[in-house]
């Protein structure tokens, strides 16, 4: 068991190393013009330069902040609203058709609306990121709350549990797998929208860095930014994994 995990780790490292080698080869052979494709060596150098000068760190912090605020706001609103809608059959009946209509709406479509209303501001970015990442969480929470085993509510009645206790000891833990799955999806959406908003509104962040680097043909800087975005996506997903396996330990027991 342990060994096979280690084996897979090694294999995935080997694949990554192979891809980087291929990238270096392509750059060295000038298969693609260096104006567009820097080698990994140059991208890495640019990354280090950005870190030591602090420029890139500021941008990284900017993107992380945008992402975190939007995602947290969406989490609070999504879980609270989802709990309300999901735990009531009548609410579900009234609200579900509207949600089905709004859900497939591409969030990029509301960006112009948000810009018109809020300007090219941090507030606009917050609104767009939160709105976009709200959906997976809202729908996940609604589903989770709607799917709570009715027998458990009877157990709660027989035990005389308070309304608050029912929410926190029965409904929330029961809906946790769906909520966490929604949160995971939202994390990706939040990152994408943070980058888009930074590009459009010129807010301090990796999106802006990438856009400006591209415009001035600084391909090494561009790649350094893109690599950093990849790392953010990867690390936040890992953190989510850790949170899930901690919170949903009981599901591991089931399998």
């Amino acid at each position: 068991m342990k060994w096979s995990v280690l084996g897979w780790r090694l294999a995935s490292f080997a694949v990554a190393a192979g891809l980087i080698t291929l990238w270096q080869f392509a750059a060295d052979q000038r298969l693609i013009s260096p104006v567009f494709l820097p080698g990994p060596d140059r991208a890495w150098a640019s990354l280090m330069r950005g870190f030591t000068s602090g420029d890139l760190l500021t941008k990284l912090a900017g993107t992380l902040t945008h992402m975190a605020y939007g995602w947290l706001l969406a989490s609070i609103v999504g879980v609270a609203l989802g709990a309300m809608i999901g735990s009531s059959k009548t609410m579900r009946a009234y609200v579900a058709p509207t949600l089905e209509l709004l859900r497939p709406l591409p969030v990029s479509a509301i960006i112009p609306v948000a810009i018109a209303a809020l300007g090219l501001s941090q507030g606009m970015a917050l609104a767009v990121i939160a709105f976009g990442s709200l959906w997976p969480m809202l729908l996940g929470t609604i589903h989770g709350f709607a799917a709570v085993e009715p027998r458990l509510y009877e157990v709660a009645r027989v035990l005389h549990m308070s309304r608050l206790a029912v929410i926190f000891k029965i409904a929330l833990p029961s809906a946790a797998p769906d909520i966490l799955a929604g949160m995971r999806l939202s994390l990706t959406v939040a990152l994408i929208l943070a980058v888009v908003c930074e590009m459009l509104a010129g807010l301090d962040g990796l999106g802006q860095w990438v856009l400006l680097s591209a415009r001035s043909f600084r391909s090494a800087d561009l790649f350094a930014g893109v690599m950093l975005l990849g790392v953010i996506g990867y690390v936040t997903a890992l953190a989510m994994d850790a949170a899930e396996s901690r919170l949903l330990r009981w599901q591991a027991a089931r399998r």
Partner: peptide
């Protein structure tokens, strides 16, 4: 008045251990 339900699989909280399930009643 305690109720032992027929479908024990549905009446227990799967996210709580045996001790945790008993604790639910003790907490209330």
């Amino acid at each position: 008045i305690a109720v032992v339900f027929q479908d024990y699989g549905k009446a227990l909280l799967p996210w709580r251990t045996a001790a945790g399930n008993i604790s639910l009643a003790l907490e209330t």
